[in-house]
Design a protein around this nucleic acid. Structure first.
Length: 271
DNA sequence: GGCCAGGCCTGAT
DNA sequence: ATCAGGCATGGC
């Protein structure tokens, strides 16, 4: 069990900000899954409690070592009204360190899709071939291993409602294994992205999400439809190419890019 | 019922 | 290098 008190950790903001998809409400808290692990989050008075079978994993997962007070202060010091508002809206949002394998596949599902449907598609996949296990009286299903993904064909994915993304899953599961992950993990961000972009179904935006949420490359600024709106409406931007918009933000915000992006995205999309 | 969603791939210039 | 056009499906 992990128990602490911090203004800079809010369960709802961290879960609902759009970076992760596998969680649900249970009693007064939430069960969250990451690959084949799970934890139960809730408040106890002023304290946040995280119960799991692997404290070390979730301590790292929730990025509890990092000083978010400084990040928030730096964001406010940028003197961008929208960013200040976004930070004040959710200063307890934390960028989690998700499982790399899972993140690659989950964000392939995310493209041109909405969050409720992303969640249900992932859940369907896990129930279909993921390993069941018990946690707090619930039967949960792990995110499939590569071997389990390979038991499914493109047609199987489409039958599960993947749409055209079924093709991407079939292709990527041929390539992405533990060795692949290990190999690209050691690359610097630019080279990492070049590798990820070779995967079918991974374009700039999905690549940036994988880099940020899976590989903790916080000098990434994913630009989707919402962020593009923010760029135009709140930053007065005129570029239309999303790749160039991402370049603009990462040059401006550097290693804080990913944090600021999440505050902004969550604020714009609405709680 | 039409528009949109944490976009990407392909083929034509 | 750039840019339409097409793409599966469900939420709202």
């Amino acid at each position: 069990m992990i128990k602490f008190r911090s203004k800079y950790f809010n369960i709802e903001d961290t879960l609902f900000c759009g970076q992760l998809f596998r969680f649900f409400k249970k009693n007064d808290g939430y069960i969250l899954q990451s690959r084949n692990k799970a934890c139960y989050l809730y408040y106890e008075g002023d304290y946040t409690v995280i119960e799991s079978d692997d404290d070390e994993y979730f301590y790292n997962y929730f990025d509890l070592e990092r000083d978010y007070e400084t990040i928030c202060r730096n964001a406010v010091n940028e003197n961008v009204p929208c960013l200040t508002e976004a930070v004040n809206n959710a200063c307890g949002l934390r960028l989690v360190r998700q499982d790399k394998f899972e993140t690659i596949f989950e964000f392939i599902i995310s493209q041109n899709n909405n969050i409720p449907r992303i969640k249900s598609t992932i859940e369907k996949l896990c129930r279909k071939v993921g390993e069941p296990f018990n946690f707090k009286g619930e039967t949960l299903y792990a995110f499939p291993t590569r071997r389990q993904l390979l038991t499914l064909s493109e047609a199987d994915y489409k039958q599960m409602g993947f749409g055209y993304r079924g093709n991407y899953f079939a292709s990527c599961s041929e390539i992405v294994d533990d060795d692949y992950i290990r190999r690209i993990s050691s690359l610097e961000t630019e080279k990492l992205k070049i590798e990820l972009l070779k995967l079918k179904g991974v374009g700039n935006k999905v690549c940036d999400c994988i880099s940020l949420f899976g590989f903790s490359r916080t000098d990434s600024f994913p630009v989707d439809t919402w962020v593009e709106k923010i760029y135009r409406q709140d930053f007065g931007g005129t570029l239309t190419d999303r790749k160039l918009i991402a370049d603009y933000f990462t040059k401006r915000f550097k290693d804080n890019s990913g944090f600021y992006q999440q505050y902004l995205f969550y604020f714009k999309r609405g709680k």
